[in-house]
């Protein structure tokens, strides 16, 4: 029982990070109908920023907010430089474009920093444990869950209560109708990219605290997990993205703790297979977003 609770907390910790990434992907999918495979590059950029700021002698407490801001700005810049040109293009073109960005950013880091991974110190508290009701948890997991919840609450507050959030949801449902109401498409898309970038920034902080390294391919795995989580939840559904992320985290932890020793390395492989099966039976994910095709 104790073990199960620990695993659940561990899973929620992982899942929280995935949820933040997936939510960012879902927000952009909503307004542009684009699956942003370049989303992971925000984490790569964050990783190098963290590395750079460490070199400059900053501390994690300052680096964390800086990284979040940098990720948000990077997201907007990428939109301005690349995605702006393929708005409304066929799905194939947009998918390929986001992959192109993914590769270009990766190559830029190889060119101007290094092809090798750079290490930086992890915060010293992340392996501490804390006892709650007689069960010991990793402080890190608890912190991730707490801040993820906080971020999600803030995000959903923005989406539900601010004019920007309401307009964004309106645009996600019917872009042209939103424009007819006076919603400015540039502003809403830029805003969506900023929001998505900030969410990726928060996820990046936790991801980097755990990994403690920066490399050109640092964003690959988180991007893939985020995309999968968003798809599990049903692309375009914001709540579904969060649900998908948490599910993915829990399943991973459960698999890791139950797989025999030799197979733990195959966790990701098994998770992908499970997800592939899910698509076979429910291609639209858990929550299907209605999108009528007019004939």
């Amino acid at each position: 029982m104790t073990e199960l609770i620990q695993q659940i907390v561990d899973g929620l910790g992982r899942g929280g990070i995935y949820a933040l990434i997936a939510l960012g992907i879902a927000v952009i999918f909503g307004v542009m109908h684009l699956v942003n495979f370049a989303h992971g590059e925000l984490i790569t950029v964050s990783a190098y920023s963290a590395y750079g700021l460490f070199q400059a002698g900053w501390d994690w407490w300052l680096i964390a907010p800086a990284v979040i801001l940098i990720a948000g700005m990077t997201s907007v810049v990428i939109e301005f430089l690349a995605f702006r040109w393929v708005r409304g293009a066929p799905d194939f073109t947009m998918l390929m474009t986001s992959f192109g960005i993914h590769f270009v950013v990766q190559a830029l880091f190889v060119m101007y920093v290094s092809a090798n991974f750079r290490q930086f110190p992890r915060p010293d508290w992340i392996f501490n444990t804390v006892k709650i009701a007689g069960i010991s948890f990793e402080v890190f997991d608890v912190a991730v869950i707490f801040f993820t919840l906080l971020t999600l609450i803030a995000t959903f507050w923005i989406l539900q209560k601010t004019m920007f959030g309401i307009s964004l949801r309106a645009a996600a449902e019917d872009f042209d109708a939103a424009r007819l109401m006076g919603v400015r498409s540039d502003r809403i898309i830029r805003g969506a990219f900023a929001l998505s970038g900030l969410l990726a920034g928060v996820a990046a902080v936790f991801w980097l605290m755990r990994s403690g390294q920066a490399g050109p391919t640092a964003g690959l795995t988180p991007m893939l997990k985020g995309v999968l989580a968003a798809l599990i939840g049903g692309l375009g559904s914001l709540g579904g993205a969060v649900l998908g992320g948490v599910t993915l985290g829990l399943v991973e932890v459960m698999l890791i703790s139950r797989l025999p020793e030799g197979l733990v390395g195959l966790t990701d492989g098994i998770v992908f297979l499970l997800i592939a099966f899910l698509f076979v039976f429910r291609p639209q994910g858990f929550i299907s977003v209605r999108r009528a095709e007019r004939v």
């Binding site: 309401i166 949801r169 309106a170 449902e173 019917d174 939103a178």
Partner: peptide
């Protein structure tokens, strides 16, 4: 073309 996922208020 009302926004079906939004509340009446939000619309």
């Amino acid at each position: 073309r009302i926004f079906g996922d939004l509340t009446v208020d939000e619309n």
